[in-house]
Nucleic acid binder design. Structure first.
Lengths: 341, 341
DNA sequence: TTGTACGCGTTATCAC
DNA sequence: GTGATAACGCGTACAA
């Protein structure tokens, strides 16, 4: 606290107005004469006044803070989503307090407490460790993205549609056997829809298929190991067949692609590949990878709209709270590239 | 403002203590008897008390807020840096207000005003649009990372050393002509050191070399176009020679690698390649790319230490401000991989 | 060990 | 169109 800052009081003394008038200059300038507006404006520069929104918060209760808990920024999906959310400042004016959760439930719980203590007006949760039931119990506006969302408002990609698109594309590319590689997801998370989409298409069109549900690990090396093993199995099991592989994310799809190219020098004719997400890696891979592109900008936008709606409602004299959570769905976009042509 | 929240006053009434005692329970619990501590603790749960740090800020002036302005999160370098900075919450307890600048000077200036109005205790600036002179004039603790830093404290990679490492590696790999591709940087930005390092090694060892300073563009497609052109030129200009290419970032290095592989089926023996950054792409490329790895965790750590030091100083009764900015340098780590072997 | 009284910098309410 | 005064919730001398 080096030098104390200039306050409304100082400006009031300097201009011979009252604090009230100074406040009005900021919040309702039209109620002052143009002449007096100018006087105050001059005083502001003369004294080098610096707003203090903290004091304003205490006085009117509106922090314009939104808390974000995101699992990591390592995946392009998350960093891009965070970018889009932060950019909404231009539209809505909310400031963001960001925490990286690293999938630790108790740590994230502590983050939420910290956020609440700063009187955030709402929260955006991308991490999946804390149940939506518990989240809802905090009793503040919340939107979750792409995670279990039974008790919270949410915005998700239409994963089921994405699964259908990817699977259909592989089928249309002339594959006789389709393989879907994914983590062993709970049916409660939206991404499970990708598995359902895959299965529904295969069963409806009576396509031979295999579902490989397995955690590929968190490091590049683990992924290489796991996918090598899987590839080896597929090679012997489906020798001579045209194999269509639908992998649940582009990073893993790229690893698989590189394994194939290292082995055969190029993508063999009896392999077709589709990823998921639409990350930059899918485009910059040695052969551009077909993928299901998530509309991150749109998801972020819907998220903010849904959150702002709830936050606005709370500011009314008689807030009408939602009787049931709203779930929005954003359709992904199939990106056909060279691994399916 | 649905239901007003529980305050020290409510707890005081409930427990028959004064507000002061409740305050002390939080800030200096040892000054209460264990018995009374328990009484208050019980009241806290009974009333479901929720801290209000905003009020505390107004009373004691310490926000524990740090502002961050980062150009984007598209580059892995930035998102990783942000992750590491945010993670320092565990160590230092500072909360972060994050803005994405998108290289727009006036927008970033507006962000800074907003940050100041929330009484942030310090700022971390990764974007380079606003001069360090102007930043310094805000008169609050600042650390800049990897940008022009004449008037601000900063933490940077040892770019010069990185340039030397990359260039030497190419030379040791038996290349007769070395090429460095970079943007047309100002000598004031730390990254210019890479160019100096390249030139110094080449000149000292009398290696034939060429410097290509050119903006590669912001999209993948532009990069492909620019690098194709460059490659074509190099092909004819240095036909038959062993070319060592040092590219200023891994993303571009990966594009160049893919161009070469598409043309020749593999990395030709008369090409060697080194990138910069140590991004995931350098590892997951079709052929793992040698690169100069930036120690992002260490840079983030040094940044926070440097910032906390300044912020702590300001809290003293008689703060001694720095007479000159402190610049810290973190040595990068050469990662030898397959594009130089 | 505990309490009283006031300050932090705004906004809200009610007067004029 | 403008002003006086009381909140807002907590910290902190100073006093007891």
């Amino acid at each position: 606290m080096a030098k104390k800052s200039v306050t409304f009081n100082d400006i009031a003394k300097y201009t011979n107005f009252s604090k009230t008038t100074i406040s009005r200059y900021f919040n309702n300038p039209d109620s002052l004469t143009l002449e007096n507006q100018q006087k105050i404006a001059d005083a502001l520069v003369a004294l080098n006044y610096q707003e203090n929104k903290v004091a304003r918060i205490l006085a009117n209760g509106k922090t314009e803070f939104v808390g974000i808990i995101i699992p990591n920024l390592y995946f392009h999906y998350y960093s891009q989503m965070l970018t889009e959310i932060l950019s909404s400042y231009e539209t809505f004016g909310y400031k963001f307090l960001v925490f990286v959760g690293n999938d630790n439930e108790n740590v994230e719980r502590q983050y939420i407490q910290e956020l609440l203590s700063y009187k955030i007006e709402g929260m955006i949760i991308l991490s999946g460790t804390i149940s939506s039931k518990e989240l809802a119990s905090y009793n503040i506006p919340i939107v979750t993205i792409e995670r279990e969302d039974e008790y919270t408002c949410s915005v998700n990609s239409d994963n089921y549609m994405g699964g259908i698109q990817a699977t259909s594309l592989l089928h249309k590319s002339g594959c006789d056997v389709l393989i879907h590689i994914n983590s062993d997801l709970s049916p409660k998370v939206p991404a499970y829809g990708r598995i359902r989409g895959f299965l529904d298409v295969c069963e409806e069109r009576q396509i031979e298929h295999e579902l490989i549900l397995k955690d590929l690990g968190n490091t590049f090396e683990e992924q290489v190991k796991q996918l090598s093993d899987i590839l080896e199995t597929l090679e012997s099991k489906y020798a001579g067949r045209k194999k269509g592989i639908f992998i649940s994310n582009d990073t893993a799809a790229n690893v698989m692609l590189n394994l194939l190219i290292k082995k055969y020098g190029s993508l063999p004719d009896d392999y077709r590949l589709v990823g998921f997400d639409g990350s930059p890696i899918s485009k910059s891979a040695i052969i551009p990878i077909s993928t299901v592109g998530q509309q991150i900008e749109k998801i972020a936008d819907e998220t903010m709209k849904l959150l702002v709606m709830q936050m606005d409602e709370r500011k009314k004299r008689k807030p009408v709270l939602l009787d049931a959570p709203i779930h929005k769905v954003v359709t992904p976009v199939l990106l056909r590239r060279e691994t399916t042509s």
